[in-house]
Write a protein that binds this DNA or RNA. Structure first.
Lengths: 223, 223
DNA sequence: TGCTCCAAGATTGGCGCCAATTTCTTTGGC
DNA sequence: GCCAAAGAAATTGGCGCCAATCTTGGAGCA
């Protein structure tokens, strides 16, 4: 074969992951030159990736000032959560009839992985295992676009300040939620499933503080 | 004041409008050089705008082949419609409590404008007046993100082939739907409102033909 | 000592050039 | 006359340069 093309780097994706896993604070300014180094990419690629994320609402663009991690104020966050509840309840219900034994077993394993991560893992660990559980569930939803929209909606509000990360107790609560969702799926109980999914999502919003005004100027980083 | 900055052209938006109103067929290849002329922009701007639309699913990108108007196959179309139904029913219900007399009057006027357009107007006319009605309704939804998502979901499936445009009868049906929605809003009847919105959206899918396989190669334009 | 204004430095972003790749055209062979 | 292959033309797309703009630091003045 004559030199297959190199896999074509998905820098937008890489950057999204970096923002999610690296320690960035909401509102923090992103200097292109820093990202060039961290992602080992050139200026143009970085800018393209940033524009992508800006369009998806993950970062915010201010002309001639640059890009910064989107500040998701509480109103916005709650809006996003309510949309997620709507989409995810529907997606879960649609997925349920398509789940066979193997599927349930897989979800079982993922729920266990999350539980393990809540105790032994880092932020990145439990964040990822949690996503795995949900994404796997929705992978059986016939409506692919809906699954994509769920992921996107989630990404748009993932980056809240570290101070607001869930407590250990909240994580345990989440793990229990997974169990209950799994049980409802196994028993093919749509009513309970819907209720569980909804409350599982809405849980994320409890004990979020009242809105803090993000100052456009002060929130910098000297890094 | 020292030369306020020029309003910064939103070429992505302009291009989306061009694709919607100009006569482009689904699957048609878009040559950058043509778009440069039609939009009176340079190569770089066109490419940026195209990437934007690609991300939003309005056009499709094939490396080293270029961009083409997204082919929304029937499966995809139905998926999108079902999502719209979900989001729009919810949005309408949320908007209802916030509608005052003035709001209802405005919707009344927009419904009338649509009816007029179905008889006297062109595709662009009735398409736009229809959007106006819905967008105005959702402008009272407290959840702004949801309103945006609705618009986006709609845009992603707006460009179906001309052959599939609704008949005069279908348009009349739509107009009647608007009337019924308005009636439900006036009577503050959530149950009927939900049902009407849902069927109004799903109506769009009736008499869509079975899926046609879009050939990657053949669907060109010599223009 | 504190404030204002200016200049230097840092950062962003518009844009055009040219290489990479595909498609079209022509030529040559069977 | 038809198919295949090579060359030509057209199109896309990566990328770096430098102008436009914002921020910072400090000098000058009250």
């Amino acid at each position: 074969m004559p030199a297959r093309r190199p896999p074509k780097r998905q820098l937008g994706l890489e950057l999204a992951i970096l923002l999610r896993t690296g320690d960035f604070r909401a509102g923090e300014w992103l200097r292109q030159i820093d990202l060039e180094h961290r992602l080992n990419a050139n200026r143009f690629e970085v800018r393209t990736a940033l524009s992508e994320l800006a369009l998806r609402g993950i970062v915010e663009h201010v002309p001639f000032r640059g890009f910064r991690v989107a500040v998701t104020d509480m109103k916005r966050l709650k809006d996003l959560l309510s949309i997620r509840a709507l989409l995810e309840v529907d997606a879960a219900l649609a997925a349920m009839p398509h789940l066979d034994e193997a599927a349930l077993a897989k979800l079982e394993a993922l729920a266990a992985a999350f539980e393990h991560a809540t105790v032994h893992g880092s932020y990145a660990d439990w964040s990822q295992t949690n996503l795995d559980f949900h994404d796997t569930l929705y992978s059986w939803t016939p409506n692919r676009i809906q699954a994509e929209m769920i992921i996107e909606a989630r990404d748009r509000a993932r980056l809240w300040p570290k101070g607001l990360w869930p407590s250990f107790a909240a994580l345990q609560q989440s793990a229990a939620g997974h169990r209950r969702i799994l049980a409802a799926l196994t028993r093919r109980d749509p009513t309970v499933l819907a209720a569980e999914i909804r409350s599982h999502i809405m849980e994320s919003a409890v004990n979020l503080p009242s809105e803090e005004a993000p100052d456009g100027r002060a929130n910098g980083t000297k890094n």
